[in-house]
Design a binder for these strands. Structure first.
Length: 868
RNA sequence: GCGGAUGUGGCGGAAUUGGUAGACGCGCUAGACUUAGGAUCUAGUGCCGCAAGGCGUGGGGGUUCGAGUCCCUUCAUCCGCACCA
């Protein structure tokens, strides 16, 4: 046997562990670099060959940065709370804590044998009480905070209470979903309970009766990003809309900052666009319409206030609060019929039947505040209660949906921009000259847009307004395997457990993970799940105050886990703070984050939000978690399908490592293609990288497998091969082009094999270059070369570009852009000299065939093109 | 419908600023060594053609001495959002 990878790899993995080679130090004179992976959910099926792709890439980069002299933080952990473990528990009765621990052991074993340079001493598990007490602590901070629109940041709730005391609601520009008005005297007169109720409207973690995604099969509510096409992300079960009392996080308050922050970070355009789209900012105006015969007004949101003279009817969402009130006796049965229809229609049906216009007339009329016209008020489910005001002014000349609606129900269509043909369809272009629009006639669309808003403001019936699609994040789940809320209830009002008592609020042990017979979440089965305030501990049910029965969603822990890694395992503050000031000041933002793009609207949005929140409160010195993000592509199965147990096409990295070794797996995964692309696995192809490593091994081993190294001085060709490789690998590292570096290694070893080069001065730097991709064989050769320390912190080889320059250049000679032959010319000739040599060449004369060239283009060191 | 990405040999892919298209690897063909080889080595391998030569980066057009690369247009595939007023 030539190179015994299994022995060598096991040896170095053990050695690194003994040496503590990859432990990051929290006090180091070196510059810091933080390379983070998205930590895995430890599922029962273990890792397949696609999972380590991003980990290999980040590991290569982390190792590269160590060679460059950085103090690198490269941690790993487990996102160990979540649905699958609990589903498994319901099916088998196995406690999720046990299965999760088993899965973690298996993951660790799988990860270890790939040779990652993780600092395992900093490992986090989101289901570990020492971790989740800080997830609970952040929740408490959210609960006790509000969003100040004056300072444009989150602040402790005490400052809002002070403003209410001093000035009532007049004093505070506070973000809230509702509009409340009271004076300071009224505030002071409120009961304690009333005050708490009012504050709940402003807290960043709040409990409210809202329409949520309810998944009956999973028995829990889900956040918007956990619902894909009307089905649950986990399990693919149907999801319905339901009104329920739930905890939410007021992420909407941060919508604008979440958009603005994208300009400050290097993430892919596609992820940024997905987030912008999801946040869904749109600029327009909110305008008030009065209802004929009622004192009530209807607010509408529109992005085209300029078209208001063309608003010939109005449409309310079926759930709009005024529908009941304004419906006339004659129209009552029709409206009730439609409400019934709309209620029964599922989200999926509604989405599938977009083309099919439906609606009903309330019998009521609104007054167009500008044209003065009486316009009919309809209801239809194409208007969504959750967006804008749940009501629109319909301008059929300018909006396709309004046009379809008007056509279907024979409603009036008035052209408002010159040249519109309202018989053919709607025209939504923002250009042209206004007509039929009173004082706007003759003005451009752009002018009118601003004028109408100004006029609305003057008349007190409207104002400019920005709307967001982003909805607050539903934060409670009717599940067991998650963080318990540090919340108890007095008279139905939520109170937080004191921060210093959080060690008491651990997930209680139960043995049945289904909802209770009364429909409560599984925590309803816990025997001691009431809070004794005075003693500061959990007590038997029936005593004290009842605790919250919901748990937090799967993504609660990943909101902030990257900060916890900064705390060294032996830090004295570890149990006193979620992260120490020294640690977060030193490590700062994550410099490089690698993970899947599927988290674009979930984790990657939520943890930006929580980062901004913690920044506002002064706990951390930055408001974006990650400077640079890379989304690795998926490795598909060889048949082009997604790798999945269902198709039986899963390739297990354990098998690959057993058969070809960890270095081969690492090199092969990188060699498959660019890190961000999806690409199929190729079982045969791994032979190529294995051959490459054997070839490298043979370069410095005799036929009898004895290590042989020459101390001779290198020649020009050998130096050129090496320095070409230094240049290529260094450039590839900076642009994360790990596939091309593998080919550069192969080129170098092929060339050195041809040159029969086993010289120390060439092999040593080459092994350093390779050590990021294939650390085991590199470490072995490094030690054979006589070094006692690990290769991992040896300085990166320095490029000398003088070695790259050749004595001569082989010029392709092309005629009209087509290469015909080559001429070898000495390096350093100027344009005239090159042209002279080419024109005197007999091949050139032959190809010119007596003609005079019209033009000769000489690009030194590149090409000569003759235009004949 | 809106937004984003990707199209290059039999396959994965390379070509960083417009300058030798197909690096590197897989596969395939032939040969060497071998009792044997899924080991190793040598040579070859974009397509058509005996050759000279011609054609080639999804399709069509353009700019340029020169285009995979820039511009216009079109098609296909994948991903995200979707009656968002």
């Amino acid at each position: 046997m030539e190179y015994d990878f299994s022995k060598v790899e096991a040896k170095w993995q053990k050695q690194w562990q003994e040496w503590g080679t990859f432990a990051a130090k929290n006090n180091s004179p070196k510059p810091k670099y933080y390379v983070l992976d998205m930590f895995p959910y430890p599922s029962g099926s273990g890792l397949h060959v696609g999972h380590p792709l991003g980990y290999i890439a980040s590991d290569i980069y982390a190792r590269f940065k160590r060679h460059q002299g950085y103090n690198v933080l490269h941690p790993m952990g487990y996102d160990s709370y979540g649905l699958p473990a609990e589903q498994y528990a319901i099916e088998t009765g196995q406690h999720p804590a046990i299965t999760t621990e088993d899965n973690i052991k298996r993951y660790r074993k799988q990860l270890d044998q790939i040779g990652f340079s993780f600092d395992w001493s900093r490992q986090v598990k989101t289901s570990d009480p020492n971790f989740y007490r800080w997830t609970q602590w952040i929740f408490i901070k959210l609960f006790h905070s509000w969003y100040n629109l004056d300072t444009n940041k989150a602040e402790p709730i005490e400052s809002l209470i002070q403003l209410f005391k001093d000035h009532g609601t007049k004093g505070a520009k506070a973000y809230s979903a509702t509009t409340l008005e009271f004076t300071s005297a009224e505030w002071e007169a409120f009961s304690e309970t009333k005050k708490r109720e009012v504050l709940l409207e402003f807290r960043l973690a709040y409990r409210a009766d809202t329409i949520v995604n309810w998944c009956p099969a999973l028995g829990t509510v889900l956040a918007n990003d956990e619902v894909i096409n009307g089905k649950s992300e986990r399990g693919g079960h149907p999801v319905e809309q339901k009104r329920m009392m739930q905890w939410s996080l007021r992420i909407r308050a941060f919508a604008q900052r979440l958009i603005d922050g994208l300009d400050t970070i290097s993430w892919s355009d596609s992820i940024k666009d997905i987030q912008r789209n999801w946040i869904g900012r749109s600029q327009g105006a909110e305008i008030e319409f009065s209802v004929d015969g009622f004192v009530d007004k209807i607010d509408v949101f529109t992005t085209r206030p300029d078209t208001i003279f063309g608003a010939t009817f109005m449409v309310l969402a079926p759930e709009h609060e005024l529908v009941e009130k304004i419906t006339t006796v004659e129209q009552r049965s029709q409206i009730e019929h439609y409400l019934d229809f709309a209620k029964k229609r599922t989200e999926r049906e509604r989405m599938a039947e977009v083309k099919d216009v439906t609606g009903a007339f309330t019998g009521a009329f609104a007054i167009n505040p500008f044209s003065g016209a009486k316009i009919p008020i309809w209801i239809s489910d194409y208007v969504l209660v959750s967006y804008g005001t749940g009501a629109i002014m319909a301008v059929p000349a300018g909006d396709e949906r309004d046009w379809d609606f008007a056509k279907k129900f024979s409603l009036n269509i008035i052209p408002i921009i010159e040249g519109q043909d309202v018989e053919k369809g709607a025209d939504d272009k923002k250009e042209g000259i206004m007509i039929n629009s009173g004082f706007l006639n003759g003005k451009t669309v752009q002018e009118s847009m601003q004028e109408i808003i100004t006029e609305c403001e003057n008349r007190g019936i409207g104002r400019g307004k920005i709307n967001f699609k982003l909805r607050d994040a539903v934060f409670s789940r009717q599940r067991y395997w998650g963080e318990p809320f540090p919340i108890y209830y007095r008279e139905g009002i939520p109170y937080t457990v004191d921060e210093d008592k959080l060690d008491q609020i651990q997930l209680p042990n139960i043995d049945n993970f289904k909802p209770t017979e009364t429909g409560d979440p599984p925590l309803g089965r816990a025997e001691q799940w009431n809070w004794d305030r005075k003693e500061g501990k959990l007590v038997q049910n029936g005593k004290g105050y009842p605790m919250e029965l919901n748990t937090m969603p799967g993504w609660a822990g990943s909101n902030w886990y990257y900060l916890r890694y900064m705390m060294a395992a032996n830090s004295e503050h570890r149990n006193a703070e979620f992260v120490s000031k020294e640690a977060v000041d030193y490590w700062g933002q994550v410099d490089l984050y690698i993970g899947g793009a599927e988290h674009a609207t979930g984790h990657l949005l939520y943890f930006r939000f929580i980062t901004k929140f913690l920044y506002d409160l002064g706990f951390i010195p930055f408001d974006e978690p990650v400077k640079q993000l890379i989304n690795q592509g998926m490795i598909q199965a060889e048949d082009g399908h997604k790798m999945s147990k269902r198709y039986g096409n899963v390739v297990n990295p354990d098998d690959v490592v057993a058969e070809s070794g960890a270095d081969a797996l690492r090199l092969h995964e990188m060699f498959l293609g660019p890190i961000e692309m999806h690409k199929p696995w190729n079982t045969k192809g791994i032979e190529g990288v294995s051959r490459f490593m054997r070839k490298l091994w043979r370069l410095v081993h005799s036929a009898e497998n004895n290590f042989t190294i020459s101390e001779d001085a290198p020649n020009k060709d050998e130096l050129k091969s090496l320095h070409k490789c230094i240049q290529k690998i260094s450039e590839d590292m900076e642009r994360f082009s790990f596939n091309t570096s593998v080919s550069a290694f192969m080129v170098a070893v092929n060339e050195l094999t041809d040159l029969k080069c086993n010289k120390r001065s060439i092999i040593e730097p080459l092994v350093i270059l390779l050590s990021c991709h294939a650390p085991h064989i590199s470490e072995e050769l490094w030690s054979k070369l006589g070094h006692k320390e690990s290769i991992s912190e040896v300085p990166w080889p320095i490029l000398n570009s003088a070695y790259l320059i050749d004595d001569s250049v082989n010029y392709p000679i092309s005629f009209n852009g087509k290469t015909r032959f080559y001429i070898e010319l000495p390096n350093g000739m100027n344009k005239q000299e090159i042209e002279q040599s080419v024109m005197n060449n007999e091949e050139t004369i032959k190809w010119l065939d007596g003609k005079n060239p019209k033009k000769i283009i000489v690009v030194p060191n590149r090409i000569v093109n003759i235009v004949a």
